[in-house]
Simulated scan of single mutants.
Amino acid sequence: MLTFRRSLIAAVCLIAFVLLLRTTHSTVAIDREPGVPAQQPPGGQQQDTGLPQQQQQQQQQQLLSSAPPASASLRDRLRYQFPYRLEAPFPAYIWQTWKYAPSSVWFQERLRPREASWSQMNPEFVHEVVGDDTQGHLIRYLYAAVPEVYEAFEAMPLPVLKADFFRYLILLARGGIYSDIDTTALKPATVWLPAELDQSTVGFVVGIEADPDRPDWHDWYSRRIQFCQWTIQSKPGHPILRDLVAAITEDALRMKKKGILYTGKMDKTVMEFTGPAAWTDAIFRYFNNEEYFYVEPGSTRNITYEDFTYQQDHRKVGDVIVLPITSFSPGVHQMGAGDLNDPMAFVRHDFDGSWKTDPSL
C-alpha cells in the first residue's frame, strides 16, 4: 500500500512539473468590441501579478487549457497564436518587400530614395525590406503552429499573390506599417493620427484608394469604395487580418486540392483572391460583423460604401481609423484627392505597377 501511494504522488508531481515547463503564450487571445476601453479579460493574465507561486501555477494551467485543439478552426488557432491587444501601442516596425534586399547590387537605384524616405521620416522605427528569397523562411517561422498558412503561401503561383499575402501575414503576426516599395513617406507615421486621439482605442489604420462616383466605376475599379492596401498600419492580431489570412489560406488550399492553383487556371482573379477587392471585402465584413459592432436587429446593413464617399478627414469606425484618399494617394488629381502639400498627405504612391510584369496577368 505504501509503495502504491508513493508511486501515485510521484506521478502527480511529474505531471505538474511537465505542465510548468511547457511554454505557451503569456496572454490569451481576447477580442473586445472595438473602441471600448480596455478591461481585464475574464480568465486573462496580467503581465506582472505578484501573486503567490500556487496562484501563478493555477493561472499557468488555465492558459495551457485555453489553447485550442489541433481540430479547431483556422481562425480560432490564428486568434490564439496572434492575440489582439487594443490597448497596446502600435509596434514601431516598417515592412516592405522587393525582389532583392537593399544590400543587393540588384536593388534598383530608382527605389533607393523612396526606401530611404521611410527611415528618414521615422528614425525611431525598425525598417525592414524583405527580399523574395527571405519571405518564405520568415512566414514558415512565424506560422509554424499553423502550417497550412505556410503551405498556402508556398503554393501561390505568382509573385504578386505572395506579395499581397505577405503584407497581411507580417502585420497579423508582428504589426506595424506595411508599405509598397514604390511609395515615399511624406510625413512621420507619428502624425498620421490626430494628437488628441487616444491610440489605445485604435488598432488599425487604412486609407481610401478609390471613390469613383461615376456610372462606369466598375470598368475601372473592383468596388465602389476601394480601400488602399499599398500602405497599412495595424496592431498585431487584428481581426480584419485574421479573417483575411484565413480566407486566403482556405481558398489557396481549396484550389490546390482541385489542381487549379496555377497561372491561368485559378477560379479567382488576383484582385478577388488576394488584391484590393478581397482586402476591401474583409474590411467591410469586419464593419458588419455582430461580434464586433452593434447591428440593428433585422437590418441588412451597418456600414457601406456610402459612409465613406467624399470623405475629407479622419473617420473613426470602432477601432479603425479610415483616412481620406489624400492621405495615401495625394496628387492623383481625381476623386477629390488633394496635392502633395496637403496637410492630410502622408504617403506618395508612384504606381509603378511592377506586379503587372508577371506573366499571364
Score class of each variant (00 low, 15 high):
F273V: 02
R242H: 02
Q233A: 15
L21T: 03
Y305H: 12
G176Q: 02
G131I: 01
L244F: 01
I177H: 03
M1T: 08
G336C: 08
Y100M: 09
I139Y: 00
E115Q: 15
Q226L: 13
Y262C: 11
S329W: 05
H349N: 05
N122C: 07
E306T: 08
P215R: 06
Q40C: 05
P215E: 15
A282T: 10
Y262H: 14
S354K: 11
R167I: 05
W279P: 00
V270N: 12
T309V: 15
L142V: 01
L172W: 04
Y80D: 12
W118A: 11
F346M: 08
Y178I: 03
Q58G: 03
L261W: 11
T326N: 02
W220Y: 15
P37M: 05
K162M: 09
V191K: 04
V105H: 06
V317L: 08
T309D: 14
R301T: 13
G275Q: 02
P239Q: 07
A88P: 03
M1Q: 12
W230V: 04
T24L: 06
R285N: 15
T249Q: 01
R315Q: 15
F107N: 01
Q60L: 12
E296F: 11
A29Q: 05
L186V: 02
I94E: 06
K356H: 12
A72M: 05
R77C: 08
L193W: 00
E291P: 00
P41G: 08
G275F: 03
L14N: 09
L340D: 06
P52D: 14
P123E: 09
N122G: 04
P236V: 03
I139D: 03
W279H: 14
H333R: 13
L158T: 07
D198L: 08
H25S: 14
